[in-house]
Simulated scan of single mutants.
Amino acid sequence: MSESNTTHFTNPSTFILQGFPGLEVAHVWISIPLCAMYTTAMLGNFTILCIVKMELSLHEPMYYFLCMLAATDLVLSTSTTPKMLSIFWFNSREIDFNACLTQMFFIRCFSRIESGILVAMALDRYVAICHPLRHSTILTNSVVAKLALAVVLRGAILSLPYPLLARQWPYCRTNLIPQPFCTHMAVVSLACADTSVSSSYGLFVLLCVTGLDVIFIALSYMQILRAIFRLPTKDARLKTFGTCVSHLCAILVFYIPGLFSSLTYRFGQNVPLHFHILIGNLQLLVPPMLNPIIYGVMTKQIRERLIRLFSHKET
Rank of each mutant, 00 (worst) to 15 (best):
T7L: 12
H8R: 13
T14A: 12
F15D: 02
L17K: 01
Q18H: 11
F20Y: 01
P21W: 08
H27V: 14
W29C: 15
W29E: 11
I30F: 00
P33W: 08
L34T: 06
A36E: 15
T39K: 09
T39N: 11
T40E: 05
M42H: 10
M42L: 06
T47M: 13
I48L: 00
L49A: 04
I51P: 06
I51T: 12
K53L: 14
K53F: 04
M54Y: 03
M54L: 09
E55R: 11
L56A: 13
H59F: 13
E60M: 11
M62S: 14
C67Q: 00
M68E: 02
V75N: 09
T78H: 01
T78Y: 05
S79P: 04
T80V: 03
T80P: 00
T81V: 13
M84V: 12
L85E: 02
L85W: 01
F88K: 11
W89F: 07
N91M: 15
F97T: 03
M104I: 02
F105T: 03
R108Y: 15
I113Y: 08
E114M: 08
V119G: 11
A122E: 05
A122K: 15
L123A: 11
D124Q: 14
R125N: 05
A128Y: 15
A128H: 03
P132L: 03
L133I: 14
R134F: 15
S136G: 14
L139E: 00
T140E: 03
V143I: 15
A145G: 13
A148S: 06
L153H: 10
G155K: 10
A156P: 08
S159N: 06
S159I: 15
Y162I: 06
L165T: 13
L165Q: 02
W169H: 10
P170N: 01
R173E: 15
R173D: 04
T174P: 03
L176C: 10
I177S: 04
P178N: 12
P178D: 13
F181L: 03
C182P: 14
T183M: 01
H184A: 08
H184K: 03
A186Q: 03
V188M: 06
V188H: 09
L190I: 05
D194N: 04
S196T: 11
S196M: 08
S200A: 07
Y201W: 07
F204R: 06
F204H: 13
F204N: 01
V209K: 06
L212I: 10
L212Y: 08
V214G: 10
L219G: 05
L219D: 12
S220G: 04
Y221L: 09
Y221C: 14
Q223S: 10
L225V: 14
A227C: 05
A227P: 04
F229E: 10
L231C: 15
P232S: 02
K234H: 03
V245N: 07
Y255W: 11
P257G: 07
P257V: 11
P257F: 07
S262Y: 10
G268N: 04
Q269Y: 13
V271G: 05
V271Y: 07
V271E: 10
P272N: 00
P272Q: 07
P272Y: 09
H274N: 15
L278V: 04
G280V: 02
N281H: 02
L282V: 01
Q283S: 10
P287F: 03
P287D: 00
M289N: 06
I293H: 07
I293C: 08
G296P: 02
V297L: 09
Q301C: 00
Q301F: 02
E304I: 03
L306P: 07
L309E: 05
F310E: 07
S311D: 13
